[in-house]
Amino acid sequence: MTDHVSDHDARVLNDHYDALATGSGESLMARLRAAFHDAGCNPDHLTLDEVAGIDQLHLGGRAASRSLAALGALRPDQRVLDVGCGTGGASRLVATEAGCQVVGVDITAAFIEVAEWLSAATGLTQRTRFVCADAARTSLPDGAFDVIWCQHALMNMPDMAGVLEEWRRLLVPGGRVLLHEVVAGDNPEALALPVPWARTTATSHLMGREALQVSLAEAGFVPVSVRDVTETALAWRQKHVRREAGVEKDARLPGPALIFGAEFAEMGRNLRDNLAADKVRILEGVWRMA
């Protein structure tokens, strides 16, 4: 088996995604609970609409998750593993809208703590659960899932071979992988940083589309439907850059700046510019385990 994420890599990721806790000493969950309280919401009884601003930390938001779920033709009887689940938004969406049972896994402990709280606050603890683990070594049982779901997480995973090997172990025969991922574009110039997944190159492990598909093929995953959705993602990001520059600063409900900090607006602009310059592209697809 290939090496899994090192303790150093795990610390780098935690430092990136939970940077505000390091600076302030206040946990992510404490900050978010206080923000919901200040917005006039009960932090222990929230709606999915109220938490949408902090639980869909990927390009396209809920629309992108719905598009991936439709492409993957999810069924209510399926067991789904949400890899790199973050604060659990896609897990809750798949549980409520597709009727699946979902387990989310993420290496960032603060995200798992928040995901568990938000599922309890939205009444979804019976249909979602969350595990803090390295995606390449989860300790979940063999053949426990019908579907692997992964949105904007592979670019934080240095050991792609180990991750795909783990997916093969976790899937039932003929199981499927659903991806909505950032890949390297054709422009070889350096990324404008910071971006939401990386402040420095230390946390960015982008692969090109072709390299990703080769890795999947070598691991025994056969493409079913794959499409480039960069233009849709760019339009969404452009809209949100305008919103973040104006209306969002007065928004009532908590948004991603509470997770990423004051740099979030710059991260969003850089991501827009990287997309527009073809330094990154967005891939959506379904693969089946041969």
Rank of each mutant, 00 (worst) to 15 (best):
A161V: 11
A161M: 03
G162H: 05
G162W: 02
V163H: 01
L164I: 07
L164T: 08
E165C: 07
W167S: 12
W167C: 15
W167H: 14
R169A: 11
R169T: 12
L170W: 08
P173M: 00
R176A: 05
R176L: 04
V177S: 08
V177T: 05
L178W: 10
L178F: 11
E181M: 13
E181Y: 13
E181D: 12
E181P: 11
V182T: 15
V183W: 07
A184N: 05
G185L: 10
D186M: 14
D186P: 11
E189S: 13
L193D: 00
P194A: 10
P194N: 07
V195M: 11
P196V: 07
P196D: 05
A198G: 14
R199T: 15
R199S: 14
T203Q: 03
S204P: 06
S204H: 05
H205G: 03
L206E: 05
M207V: 13
A211M: 04
Q213W: 01
Q213N: 06
A217H: 07
E218G: 03
A219H: 07
A219C: 11
A219W: 06
F221C: 06
V222F: 07
P223S: 04
V224C: 09
R227P: 01
R227A: 15
T232F: 03
A235S: 15
A235Q: 15
A235R: 15
A235M: 12
R237H: 01
Q238T: 14
K239G: 09
H240G: 00
H240I: 09
V241Q: 01
R243E: 02
E244L: 12
A245M: 09
V247H: 02
V247S: 09
D250F: 13
R252V: 10
A257G: 12
G261C: 10
G261Q: 06
E263P: 00
F264G: 06
E266I: 10
E266C: 05
G268S: 15
R269P: 00
R269Q: 00
R269T: 00
N270T: 03
D273I: 08
A276N: 02
A277R: 06
D278G: 10
K279P: 08
K279I: 04
V280T: 15
V280G: 08
I282N: 03
L283H: 02
L283S: 03
E284W: 00
E284V: 06
G285N: 04
M289A: 12
